[in-house]
Design a protein around this nucleic acid. Sequence first.
DNA 1: AATGAATGAGAGTTCATTCAT
DNA 2: CATGAATGAACTCTCATTCAT
Lengths: 206, 206, 206, 206
Amino acid sequence: MGAKERREREREQRKSHILDVARELLLGKGMNATSINQIAKRSELSVGAIYFYFKDKEELFAALQLEGLELLHNAVRLAVAKKSTPEKKIRSIAMAYLKFSEEHKSYFDIINYFLTSPETIFPPNLKNVIDEHGNASISKLAAAVREGIDAGQFKPVDPRRQAIILWSAFNGVIQLKKLEKTILKKDEYRSLYMEALDRFLDGLRK
Amino acid sequence: MGAKERREREREQRKSHILDVARELLLGKGMNATSINQIAKRSELSVGAIYFYFKDKEELFAALQLEGLELLHNAVRLAVAKKSTPEKKIRSIAMAYLKFSEEHKSYFDIINYFLTSPETIFPPNLKNVIDEHGNASISKLAAAVREGIDAGQFKPVDPRRQAIILWSAFNGVIQLKKLEKTILKKDEYRSLYMEALDRFLDGLRK
Amino acid sequence: MGAKERREREREQRKSHILDVARELLLGKGMNATSINQIAKRSELSVGAIYFYFKDKEELFAALQLEGLELLHNAVRLAVAKKSTPEKKIRSIAMAYLKFSEEHKSYFDIINYFLTSPETIFPPNLKNVIDEHGNASISKLAAAVREGIDAGQFKPVDPRRQAIILWSAFNGVIQLKKLEKTILKKDEYRSLYMEALDRFLDGLRK
Amino acid sequence: MGAKERREREREQRKSHILDVARELLLGKGMNATSINQIAKRSELSVGAIYFYFKDKEELFAALQLEGLELLHNAVRLAVAKKSTPEKKIRSIAMAYLKFSEEHKSYFDIINYFLTSPETIFPPNLKNVIDEHGNASISKLAAAVREGIDAGQFKPVDPRRQAIILWSAFNGVIQLKKLEKTILKKDEYRSLYMEALDRFLDGLRK
DNA sequence: AATGAATGAGAGTTCATTCAT
DNA sequence: CATGAATGAACTCTCATTCAT
């Protein structure tokens, strides 16, 4: 019966190997410029093999996004785990998000790529799965805000809405990275990120 | 003598007609999926004619972005013109920005499209012109912040940095629009935008 | 086991079929006027298929040249093999070259086409392979000259240089073929070729 | 009536200006890659203007070749003028040819370009004019050979045929220039050219 | 499971040439 | 004389996808 398991394992390995190659290419040249043929060549597999593991191009790239969201959710969970005060939790999540955007740049870019691309319209069911994953991270943030409100440190605002606002602001600032060398100095976006966090926390406090 | 001028005018008309068509297609399907052939067909011109007016695809799409930035800058200038207090100015700019994102959705999307697309890298000189235009709008915002600081209403922070942060946050929230129907309710992003502004101003005030 | 080999064989057959078609077209209308589309149509394959077998147009035409150089080198080797005296060897190579230019007109023209075309610049590595092949034939000629010098029949000149000179002169005369019907009478270039050979051998003898 | 002449002169100036630009482009990128549009742009004229002065692309490039042949013929005539002995005349023509190939590289290349290009087939009448011009230079060479025979210095061979052979050999060697950096050392073709001449004269002498 | 040959539409771009002005 | 806008076919090359083996 070990044979079956081994096969299963190999299957997964192949799949993730393909994803590795695809991720690399996607980030280097964008989705449209990344072709199945290229992925095949780089992963030393045949085109047919790629199509065996993934129904089509779309499915392949959606898989990448899922990977990324899972990783992110994990990072957020860890960040929030051992922190005491709500503010510390929020700051910790913020830092985790920034860190994720830098250390897992690949995944972060992919998530954002699909989020902001008007061109790719995923089939609804896929979109749902993806949103669900995204939601998970926002909920952690909302929970921290709620805690702060309950403790009387924050204004009595809607926690989920604050979470979303914070999240959006984070994203907005991180995207500034692309303007380095023109509008911004190197790594200026980092300090801007911190200051944005300060400003919003200032605004949240009673 | 009028012949030359008329030609010039016709030339401009054709050019802007092409841009109209291109804008429509670009927003519908993204840059990569929008082909010169399609633009030619829809504008009832030959492919060659498109290339007569625009050096290549890049130049065509860059022209769209410039159009948009100019329009935006104008809207911001108007918004700030007749306002008295700094906070009112900031709120006015914010509203102008939101309004622009809705009323000139086409242009707004294009600006954001190029801003967030990791795939398109404009040749440096073009990028500079574009950034310059973008800067113009941010400066108006920064001026309002500075005014507020000088008036003793705001904390003594760096005005330009606040402007950039605010701008980024706006963008982040507006991008949420895409998540309507999944994470957000219809038009929820609008009220989130307002609340984000409130929160930020709260944080800015002494 | 045979399946793999058969495939391999079929692959080679297709490749050489494409080359056949390409050669025919190239000679008829020159490299620039010969399009991949035409080659595809004539060989009853899709454009994509051509690109499956050859990286690009350049590679396709370079393959043709290599084919030709190999054939030529073979002819030269055979020509020199069974001859006794140096002069006979040189004459034999000369005749082989002339014969090759007539019987394998296609290949000869291609070799010369690329040699004299100022427009086509091969990537360095390809150029090296091609030159190497060309060198092989010249070396045979040089060897014959050296033999003659050692035997005291020829002046003490540099053998390799004489080989190159001879080779160039041959080429120069063969190119006259194109002037038939205007400057030259039909087949006059043939007797000119022989006389050129005589004259240079006269000049080489002590 | 001077107006007419002035017009005529201006016409010629425009024409030769166009030719200057065309020549430059042709030599840089070959005939096929040189477009009328490019010539128009570079010469600061309109496309229509080019077509006013030249019927079509072919006529334009043929004009270039004629220019070159005329220049060459002139050089040969000068070379032969003041020389005393036949051998000196031949050497002088040879040097003039080599010099021409170097100093008027542009024209030389064009002449050879059209001579060896299988792709361009000029309309017969044009071809005749061109051949005629070419013949003129060869005749000078033939005359010198005949003189040498009459003077008893050269073998009793056919002068015109020797002229053609020599001419061909020159061309063959000059074409070697293209192989510099691969088969040949820099400027080696020059000394090969001289040696080829020596060898041929050796062979011609009694 | 995996291969890789084949498709054919479509991409961006260039071209010689025409012609109303 | 000269302009320059317009054409539309042709070019090289890439792509997602299929399918017989």
